Amino acid sequence: MSATLALALTGLGLLDSTSFGTLLIPIWLLLTPGRVRTGRIAVYLATVAAFYFCVGVLLVLGADAALDAVREAFDGVPPTHLRLAQLVLGLLVIAWSYRLEARARGRAGEPGRLQRWRTAAMTGASPDGDGGAGGRGVRGLMSLALAATALEVVTMVPYLAAIGLIANADLSWQVTGGALAGYCVVMILPAVLLGAVRIAAHDRAEPVLRRINDWFTRNTAKALGWTVGGIGIGLVLNAVVELLAGPA
């Protein structure tokens, strides 16, 4: 695997590390009153990493077949037509970014929604409220992790972009597995580091965690829109440059 690919995957993994499931919920776990229960946080983060690794393996398998099918389908299509299609796709992605941001803002304002997730994180209960006594332990945290990651995986554009890079890099299965595993580790690394700071600094770290929590709560929707919109702008600019440069 080239250094450029490794650097790109690291950057995308760090972007993914700021999502709802990989950072905000772990911060809520760290803000639980009393001593930090490292076992609960470890169970949650391990479940998140394992889920994304398994989904990544399935997506890479499907991406190989999909890329071959796309190459065959568009073989012989004039480059100009492909660039025009890319331009239209980029404009659609930009429009989608505004819709995602508006929808995320609307959902963030629903009464009780954020509070239910916060309660589930801080008690270990199931996010749908049916955790029961057993739900407050390992199963409750795993249920919370799986629910959070399953809900946001389709909107985690950096993650999907990383899968595309890995699938298109023609890597061996050993390297592919290592790249996916490394990506998942990078995704949970900021939460692990915040946990270490919380344990080392005790209650002195709580104000910092609360400020981070407040900032991400306010800006998550905006960041999602910017990320998707940035990809759309990149597609549009690349298509325009190629169209102006003429056929290859």
Rank of each mutant, 00 (worst) to 15 (best):
residue 102 A to L: 00
residue 181 A to W: 09
residue 47 T to L: 12
residue 11 G to Y: 03
residue 170 D to H: 15
residue 20 F to D: 00
residue 165 L to K: 00
residue 235 L to P: 10
residue 113 R to Y: 01
residue 97 S to P: 00
residue 234 G to M: 13
residue 184 C to T: 14
residue 30 L to A: 06
residue 35 R to E: 11
residue 17 S to H: 06
residue 149 T to V: 05
residue 91 L to E: 12
residue 159 Y to W: 00
residue 171 L to C: 12
residue 248 A to Y: 14
residue 175 V to R: 08
residue 247 P to A: 06
residue 132 G to Q: 03
residue 122 M to W: 10
residue 43 V to W: 10
residue 100 L to S: 07
residue 241 V to Q: 05
residue 22 T to Q: 15
residue 37 R to V: 08
residue 151 L to G: 11
residue 149 T to E: 06
residue 40 R to H: 15
residue 49 A to F: 04
residue 97 S to N: 01
residue 215 W to S: 10
residue 24 L to G: 02
residue 243 L to K: 12
residue 239 A to T: 05
residue 247 P to W: 09
residue 201 A to N: 08
residue 166 I to K: 05
residue 248 A to F: 13
residue 141 L to D: 15
residue 134 G to I: 14
residue 144 L to H: 10
residue 129 G to D: 01
residue 208 V to G: 12
residue 231 I to M: 14
residue 8 A to V: 06
residue 177 G to L: 11
residue 89 L to S: 15
residue 229 G to F: 00
residue 238 N to S: 15
residue 191 A to N: 04
residue 171 L to K: 10
residue 242 E to N: 12
residue 218 R to I: 01
residue 94 I to M: 07
residue 108 A to G: 13
residue 128 D to Q: 13
residue 45 L to Y: 00
residue 140 G to E: 03
residue 100 L to M: 12
residue 21 G to L: 06
residue 70 V to P: 07
residue 16 D to P: 05
residue 214 D to S: 12
residue 104 A to N: 06
residue 66 A to N: 11
residue 221 A to E: 00
residue 110 E to G: 01
residue 123 T to G: 03
residue 114 L to W: 10
residue 31 L to V: 12
residue 160 L to H: 12
residue 70 V to E: 07
residue 11 G to M: 03
residue 11 G to H: 02
residue 7 L to M: 10
residue 174 Q to W: 14
residue 200 A to V: 04
residue 136 R to P: 02
residue 171 L to N: 07
residue 237 L to A: 15
residue 202 H to R: 15
residue 51 F to W: 09
residue 137 G to R: 02
residue 139 R to L: 12
residue 128 D to Y: 09
residue 179 A to G: 02
residue 106 G to F: 02
residue 214 D to G: 08
residue 58 L to I: 05
residue 93 V to C: 12
residue 82 L to K: 11
residue 58 L to T: 04
residue 68 D to K: 05
residue 4 T to D: 11
residue 74 F to N: 07
residue 156 M to E: 06
residue 50 A to F: 15
residue 16 D to C: 05
residue 206 E to S: 11
residue 242 E to K: 13
residue 240 V to Y: 09
residue 194 L to D: 02
residue 173 W to P: 01
residue 91 L to R: 13
residue 193 L to P: 02
residue 147 A to C: 07
residue 62 G to N: 10
residue 209 L to Y: 08
residue 187 M to E: 14
residue 167 A to V: 02
residue 176 T to M: 12
residue 82 L to D: 05
residue 28 W to T: 04
residue 211 R to G: 11
residue 11 G to C: 04
